[in-house]
Simulated assay, not measured.
Amino acid sequence: MKTILNVLWLVLCGLWMAIGYVLAGIVCCILIITIPFGIASFRMANYALWPFGRTVIRKPTAGAGSTIGNVIWIIVAGIWLALGHLATGFALCITIIGIPLGVASFKMIPISLVPLGAEIVSTNDPRAAY
């Protein structure tokens, strides 16, 4: 079932959302100081391509640096990517088949807003239970 949902996701919206994350990553990698944002954006692009069967967990060891970075990320790119997920989620929820995909899009909003200090893991990972 995960594979079917992932293929539907990829065709309907995953590719476009991943392109948005890749563009944000490229922009962030232009300047040396924003490379960590670019790396986080590329990780999220991978997650946006194939989200079912994976989840996001917060790293308990993330410190003040990730908090400061997340505030900067929200201002620079996070709000726009979150709005993209919100619009995509509403559009997908119009049809019954699209409801699970819309819910997945809504679940990506927190990671698109605050990516630093988070890790994307398989749902089979023992850490995903927390």
Rank of each mutant, 00 (worst) to 15 (best):
M1C: 12
K2F: 11
K2I: 13
T3N: 08
T3M: 13
N6G: 14
L8R: 09
L10H: 15
L10V: 07
V11K: 08
V11C: 11
L12T: 07
C13M: 08
L15Q: 15
W16E: 13
W16R: 14
I19F: 15
G20C: 10
G20A: 06
L23E: 05
A24H: 02
I26L: 12
C28K: 03
C29E: 07
C29T: 04
L31Y: 15
I32R: 09
F37L: 07
G38I: 09
I39P: 02
A40L: 07
F42D: 05
M44L: 09
A45K: 10
N46K: 15
P51Y: 05
T55G: 06
T55L: 05
I57V: 15
R58W: 02
A64S: 14
G65C: 09
T67M: 05
N70G: 08
V71C: 13
V71M: 07
I74F: 02
I75D: 12
A77K: 00
W80V: 06
A82R: 01
L83M: 15
G84I: 00
L86T: 05
L86S: 08
A87K: 10
A87V: 12
A87H: 04
A91F: 11
T95G: 12
I96H: 07
I97G: 11
I97F: 15
G98P: 02
G98F: 03
I99C: 10
V103N: 11
A104M: 14
A104W: 03
S105M: 04
F106V: 04
K107N: 13
K107M: 11
M108A: 09
P110S: 14
P110K: 08
S112V: 11
S112D: 08
P115T: 04
A118T: 00
I120M: 06
S122G: 06
N124V: 03
D125Q: 07
